[in-house]
């Protein structure tokens, strides 16, 4: 049982990876909007990235098991739709992690994560997961994923 230390909860949440992009945590993804302590219980507010993103359910389960493993049982996860999730909530350091992982981070200019060329073109508006689209680099010819700006 925790005595209301929300910082500790944030710390733990920061260890829960995004199920689809494991190099960033759910906190870095920006889906954890708030952690409150009321009536002896932690309330964790989650804003899903995309309405139908299958990872939403997975990371809720991952968060629950992470907290339980750390003997925190007095918590509740709640979905908060407003304001809607936006890639603006991602920090520069998170974007850098995405780039190193091979995913072009959300930005107005799509830069190849392999060779840093700005000479890129769209292959498809949709990719392997709801949050990404597909691009190719005209210079190094590598196809790559781009984290869509929403």
């Amino acid at each position: 049982m925790q005595n209301g230390n929300t910082n500790k909860i944030w710390e733990l949440l920061n260890t829960v990876p995004d199920p689809e992009i494991p190099v960033i945590s759910v906190v870095e993804l920006g889906v954890i909007r708030d952690v409150k302590f009321t009536n002896n219980s932690f309330l964790i507010l989650i804003t899903p990235t995309y309405s139908g993103c299958p990872a939403t359910k997975t990371f809720q389960d991952d968060i629950s098991s992470c907290l339980k493993e750390n003997e925190i049982t007095n918590f509740e996860l709640k979905i908060k739709y407003d304001p809607p999730w936006t890639t603006d909530w991602m920090s520069d350091s998170t974007k850098e992690k995405l780039r190193k992982y091979g995913i072009a981070p959300p930005s107005n200019i799509v830069i190849c994560p392999q060779c840093n060329s700005k000479n890129t073109s769209l292959i498809s508006e949709f990719g392997a997961t709801a949050c990404k689209s597909l691009f190719k680099c005209i210079d190094c010819l590598e196809p790559f994923e781009f984290f869509k700006c929403i």
């Binding site: 309405s51 139908g52 993103c53 949709f126 709801a130």
Partner: peptide, 15 residues
């Protein structure tokens, strides 16, 4: 690519 696109749209709509 279109297959993936249409299924992604489907998923958004189901959500």
């Amino acid at each position: 690519e279109e297959d993936i696109a249409m299924v992604n749209i489907s998923l958004d709509l189901f959500g």
